[in-house]
Amino acid sequence: MVATTAPPPVERVAPQPPWAAGLSDVTASDASLRRFLHGLPGVDQVGAEARATMLATRSIKTVAKAWAIDLAITMIDLTTLEGQDTPGKVRALCAKAMRPDPSDPTVPRVAAVCVYPDMVPMAVQTLSGSGVRVASVATAFPSGRASLAVKLADTRDAVTAGADEIDMVIDRGAFLSGRYMQVHEEIVAVREACGNAHLKVILETGELVTYDNARRASWLAMLAGGDFIKTSTGKISPAATLPVTLVMLEAVRDFRDTTGRQVGVKPAGGIRTAKDAIKHLVLVNETAGDDWLDPDWFRIGASSLLNDLLMQRTKMATGRYSGPDYFTLD
């Protein structure tokens, strides 16, 4: 986690596993895509859960903890995705994103603010020049139940309004009924509509049920050109769990080993405490490696997490426990 304790990064010799041979033409047809996705090795459920649990017991203290808390703050996609969002709420959230703790200028800013498309102009206006990016959900978030034309219009709308990043949802119905090519083509189309904006692909792992499906969906999203794979919308429980993040981190690691392209991971939903966030950072370091310990490659979708990180930070600075009274409500 920190320079003083972390072992040197392991040199990865790019292996060419048999199931990844000829990756270029797996998306050529529906049949080849299905063959590839079903040819991925199955996830050892017990093993994945045990490993996630074991890594979660790592003790991160003092200097390493301070470093991890600041890193986690810089990785946050500060999110508000409610029907009751107002321009005022978005402005307040943006202010918090740029200066999480007004009484302490040493607190770093967060990575991005994540809002619904119609709130993008407000966020862009407030955040301009601050270095905090604007992410927008699109493609009929959170269900994704709309025609492709509507999804693309939704995406273009957000991009035109100035969103730097687009969080799309995949069509879980199509995925679960085995129409992988349809999901693939949809992601490719949205990717095109994004232009220069980064594309995060939300798999909604809570609806995919199994880790095998999470692994397949991860590969599908990466093959289709997603810049990030994201666990959940935050509207479905379970959202981001450690084992599912582990499976996705393995997928991005293997994908880079195979193709040379690095894809980011974003767990979202259910990460509320500094402890949870640090567990995820340990998982990143131990699974994908420290190349991913960077806001460009790992994000955490959250809202209440930020206050807990700030409280922990204050505790470390002052030596006494802090309370929610001293941080903004959101």
């Binding site: 030596g319 006494r320 426990y321 802090s322 309370g323 929610p324 009274d325 001293y326």
Partner: peptide, 9 residues
């Protein structure tokens, strides 16, 4: 001492 210094007490 921890309770006495706790900002949420």
């Amino acid at each position: 001492p921890w309770l006495a210094a706790h900002m949420d007490v």
